[in-house]
Design a binder for these strands. Structure first.
Lengths: 127, 127
DNA sequence: CTGTATCCGCAATGATACTG
DNA sequence: CAGTATCATTGCGGATACAG
């Protein structure tokens, strides 16, 4: 019982009103999770397919990322005991709803990408 | 010249279709940015107010975070040369639109928080 | 093919002291 | 009050080798 909650400096029980925000970011704010979700949003994918579809990710990180998605109930893993083994990942309904929310954020990014780039240039020029 | 693109394993020019997703996360995926944005979404805030409103953040990280928000055109800084000095931060229109997008994500989190917690318990029990 | 197990470096963050 | 400067720490993620 009482698993060690060693690390929870900020993501505590939302001290004020940011309930949920830190939660999401602790879940998708890492380097690879969103990319995996986005790829899985396109359909069922095998381990190797994900690996190839997401350039730069290591086997290790892909394993860790998919595992956490499964743990959080955002994805499901199906292993076929064939030889060689074959494993499929797919989003759960909850995972798909998260994928939609992420897509909206991506939309924001696309809309404001240029404005941000401009702001940066402007700022960098003055500093 | 060809500036050294030493590190841009993923955040490159969106190799496939995830255009924008990595961009946003590179901007708000860190430990403090969203918290500052959310706090500023409530209104104008002074440096010290932000510091107190966001438990656990260090002066250093608050400085770095606000500065990046300004650089990206998401927030504005107004310094009054009084004694002691007084500095105000506020979101720009673009910053407010991002705050809204974030709030929607937070909404998702609140909606699915329990389901995720359940999924974790279930998973942890079986592993 | 789909992972595990180790080792390791670096970048992000924290802590502390100092300044205008 | 609102930073800046510096050092210490830590944990994420990369590389590599190995396994079922």
């Amino acid at each position: 019982m009482s698993v060690a909650h060693i690390t929870s400096p900020v993501s505590g029980p939302c001290g004020d009103d940011d309930c949920g925000i830190r939660d999401v970011l602790d879940r998708i704010g890492d380097k690879w999770t969103v990319l995996v979700i986005v790829e899985l949003a396109k359909g069922v994918r095998r381990f190797g397919e994900l690996h190839r579809a997401i350039p730069g990710i290591s086997q290790r990180m892909l394993t860790l990322t998919t595992r956490q998605l499964c743990r959080d109930g955002l994805a499901e893993r199906t292993a076929y005991p064939t030889i060689p083994p074959q494993v499929e990942y797919r989003l759960t309904p909850m995972g798909r709803s998260l994928a939609e929310a992420i897509e909206r954020l991506a939309g924001w990014s696309r809309e404001h990408k240029d404005a941000i780039a401009d702001a940066r240039e402007h700022w960098d020029a003055a500093h």
